[in-house]
Write a protein that binds this DNA or RNA. Sequence first.
DNA 1: TTTACAGGATTGTCTGGCAATCAGACATGC
DNA 2: GCATGTCTGATTGCCAGACAATCCTGTAAA
Lengths: 240, 240
Amino acid sequence: MSLQVKRDSASLRFQVEKNIRLAIATGRFKPGDRLVERELCELLSVSRSSIREALRQLEAEGLIANVPYRGTLVAVLTIAEARQLYEIRELMERIAARDFTLSADDEAIRHLRQTMWVLEAAVANGTSVEMLEASDAFYTILLEHSGNTIVRQVMVPLFNRITLLRVTSMSSPGRAADSMAEMRAILTAIEARDPEAAAEAAAAHARRAGVTALAVLAKRDQNKPAEHGTGKRPGSASYG
Amino acid sequence: MSLQVKRDSASLRFQVEKNIRLAIATGRFKPGDRLVERELCELLSVSRSSIREALRQLEAEGLIANVPYRGTLVAVLTIAEARQLYEIRELMERIAARDFTLSADDEAIRHLRQTMWVLEAAVANGTSVEMLEASDAFYTILLEHSGNTIVRQVMVPLFNRITLLRVTSMSSPGRAADSMAEMRAILTAIEARDPEAAAEAAAAHARRAGVTALAVLAKRDQNKPAEHGTGKRPGSASYG
DNA sequence: TTTACAGGATTGTCTGGCAATCAGACATGC
DNA sequence: GCATGTCTGATTGCCAGACAATCCTGTAAA
């Protein structure tokens, strides 16, 4: 066990960043919503400097977009972009799984296996939030111990953007169980120390997640083609 | 010709960002160098707020790294990371070339062809800076008109990180001519409207650039294994 | 109806400041 | 000499308040 002191009193702007990210992921801020700086100040009880620095960071990740003198909006993903997103995600996960298999130690694999149990428990009888958390944890471990810094850094923004959709995509009936089975396949390949099989399993998982999500998206956009950006302000309810 | 007004009175922080990026690309700031905020303020004649916001953006792109209460350093790439970088770059360029071929209009292709001429002229009898600029322009057009927003957004940080190395990698004798020929091949495939060939040509180009760069890097690190981060301050010579 | 303009809202930027933290020098005790 | 404690200057993290630039909107004038 590492004795590292938990440098967890993370900088304020980092917490701001995390909170905004979370607010977007949970649908508190919806795609197209406007993020007014001073409202965020009040919501989060920090100064504008910290807010703005956090916004710049999120902007670089493509999670929000900035229009000069008009403000920052939560990014809106078109279907085409979603398709592109999932194509790249597949490639990245392929690499991550391969490199993890090649370079992860037993400790990491054990950790991954544990997370898989948690996921399976959540799918059996947990909330959807628990499922998402376990699923996130799985990927975090995979990326963290792949030894591939670059893939990790590329994936973070991708992942964040996918969360712009994921509330949608996971809602597909039966998808959770399939998803879990696919992840189990990744783990099995990793345990067998077979990088190619792991890569292929990860790719298959990403591919199917993409197909499902895109199907849901296409259907949604058929029903209400331009429902993004209601113009509704973030409001002032308590948050954080 | 586009009649778009050149929104070039870009925000200050954007110019700051551009200048710092350039300073890193040209070796003015070297990997490991420390970027002291107040020195940047004086160098660029802007306030700390703008500097800090620009730094956060560059940080999110992985071009600089931040250590709490110690400052921001220009990122240092290990050889392993460089290898990972080029592997992903290959995949991304493959997609970009494919999608460009599928979706670019004649105007864009003509533009690309023109840039190719500029590049060839630069290689024939131009400075290395001109070569780099033409080469950058080529890729910018490719990405901009690929219709693939996500690949573009993924590529930007990758590209920036590659410029951390590129002064090195282009210095390989004869590489410029080869590189040019490979890019010509991409263009040819695009003109033939053959997405698969274009993708393959782009991948080949990226692959070879990677091999060359890695070879140079490996050699350099053999000679002076830890010459990163001389600790030298940015200094105060004129800049910008 | 269209145009012009005033007013409000929001962002972009600056200034000055203060606490937290770090690196390095220095002194102390063994 | 070496380890430990302390001090000091430098730098970052964060803040409050301010002002100009810009955009949006509603209203009055042509």
